[in-house]
Design a protein around this nucleic acid. Sequence first.
DNA 1: CACAGCGTGTAACGCGTGTAACCTTGTTCG
DNA 2: CGAACAAGGTTACACGCGTTACACGCTGTG
Lengths: 334, 334
Amino acid sequence: MAKESASAAVTSADVARLAGVSRATVSFVLNDTQAHRVSDTTRARVLAAADQLGYVPHAAARSLRAGRSNLVLMPTSVSAVGRLVSAWLDDLHSELERHGYTTVLHAGRFSDAVGAARAWAELRPAAVVALDGGSLTAEAAGVLRRAGVRAVVGFAARPVEGVYTVAFDHARIGALAAEHLISRGRRRIGVVMPKERGLDTFARPRLAGAESVAARSTSTVNAVEMAYTRQSAAELAARWSELGLDGVFAYNDEYAALLVRALQDEGISVPEDVAVVGCDDLVLAALERPALTTVRLDLPAPARIADALHTLVDTGKAPGMPGMEPVLIHRQSS
Amino acid sequence: MAKESASAAVTSADVARLAGVSRATVSFVLNDTQAHRVSDTTRARVLAAADQLGYVPHAAARSLRAGRSNLVLMPTSVSAVGRLVSAWLDDLHSELERHGYTTVLHAGRFSDAVGAARAWAELRPAAVVALDGGSLTAEAAGVLRRAGVRAVVGFAARPVEGVYTVAFDHARIGALAAEHLISRGRRRIGVVMPKERGLDTFARPRLAGAESVAARSTSTVNAVEMAYTRQSAAELAARWSELGLDGVFAYNDEYAALLVRALQDEGISVPEDVAVVGCDDLVLAALERPALTTVRLDLPAPARIADALHTLVDTGKAPGMPGMEPVLIHRQSS
DNA sequence: CACAGCGTGTAACGCGTGTAACCTTGTTCG
DNA sequence: CGAACAAGGTTACACGCGTTACACGCTGTG
């Protein structure tokens, strides 16, 4: 309470001193070491001392000694994850906590895969889970493994060497949207590419998926850039007629909603003039006027991911995981 | 490349061995230690060896030795932060990175302030920055300080002992909304309380602010619960007539948009029957029909927060920070 | 009485770093 | 020619912790 001046952190040695025992005994008591018995009286003294000093173990020192940490690192910028994923992330966090892991998000910039991996590796996490599988090259995974990371997990379309890959095919999303638009008779299809950084690793494969579908038909696909601002949407809508698009996959429900509004303000009607498809099936998608056609993503159950991660850390092997299979939800905007 | 079998992490001792020098020399080279000179030839050998082995320093061991870490911990669940804050978080992250800090988000549950603080303290961060000032009691701050955390920063209405508080008055937000609704002639005002966990620390003071304003007038304030789902909004709208509310502060632009849609579906018109006020001034707020009246929050500049944090970690003192001053944006929904 | 057995406690080591202190060698200067 | 010095390298220690091996005192038994 009154030891305000003591700026140095409390260590187990302080607890030992106060309790009048050795540091080893303190360790045995606080960790409930079964292999070693301590008398009830000294145990009580140690616990009292620890409580009085407000002792908290030093995670770094502990995992340094143990040779392994209980940290799970999830590299992702906060603003890059939408409502859908953020709720999923929270659940996954809870599940991992039940397994004794400390989950932590790190919003690194993804410009350089190996550089990013190096930064993550410094923390020596037990596992690295990248939602953005694109940031995990085989080389980056190598950096992590060499730094002792037990489990390197990535959400990606195709397996990467050294990465435990959970199937997550963004190209399939784009393909699904394009197939739907074509089946609705649209021939000149736009795909919105967000200008916001961090989203291109998701957006690019979606575009590619749409393009590959169009290549097998008489329809065409064009990328159109747009930032998530009112102005950018308005600018895009203003030059819509010269683009001559009659269908658009808007990356996201939020981008879709923004674009629809801008188009309507320009006198372009949805779905008559332009059919619009979003993604994520957010709450707002069903509420839009017209209600948004969207691609729903059923994310893998957090509990199963957590289990797989745990056995992966423990044994080095893990069972195959069910991936994500996108489903198109047809509503009024297309 | 081929050393797949070597599961042990590579250490600076490995680099030293390969380069044929002592471990100390490796450290001098890799850290560019000015106090000690190293010949160019050995420097080159060391760098080559480090590169070949893919050596990455062990952050925990380093900060253990140094006695301080460069970790900044921000406790917050991902889904609790809206678009507004998440963009701000990313900026703050960048700024802190420029100062050499590694920023990390931890989505702990806030049921027990001291327990949470203890968990954070285990990581021995240089600083803890809590957007949710409510989770930082004086006692929790004590736990952190005793564990050696140099800077404990909280965003809160009133200063907490041992916490460097950045003024962030959620009550003021609720008050502003209530004042506006009253000035628009509304007398029975509802305040939406999200059912989602983690949001109540923000929602409660907003409600309290609205209540204190109403207490000084002839208007009344009632809390109404609502989850961020279509169904919950519909249920609330269904019993709206019996609530008899003619104005509502909907916590958030997103909740507001959802509620407005549900009310309209119920045949209740906005703003004629009910005036609605949101918060955050998101992009979607201006797009809604009717356009949403909202409370804009000017968050403190990330660069200034980062600077203050840095001097706080270094010197223990920091200049006063400009806080957040909410501003009401009047649009058509009220 | 010696010795094994058991219950409790402690000394000591190493995890991977950074750095102060200390050597060794060659060069310069009084 | 001895001393002083600079350059370039190494040895040794400490950071906080968990754990292995060992020491000590006591009891029961041959």
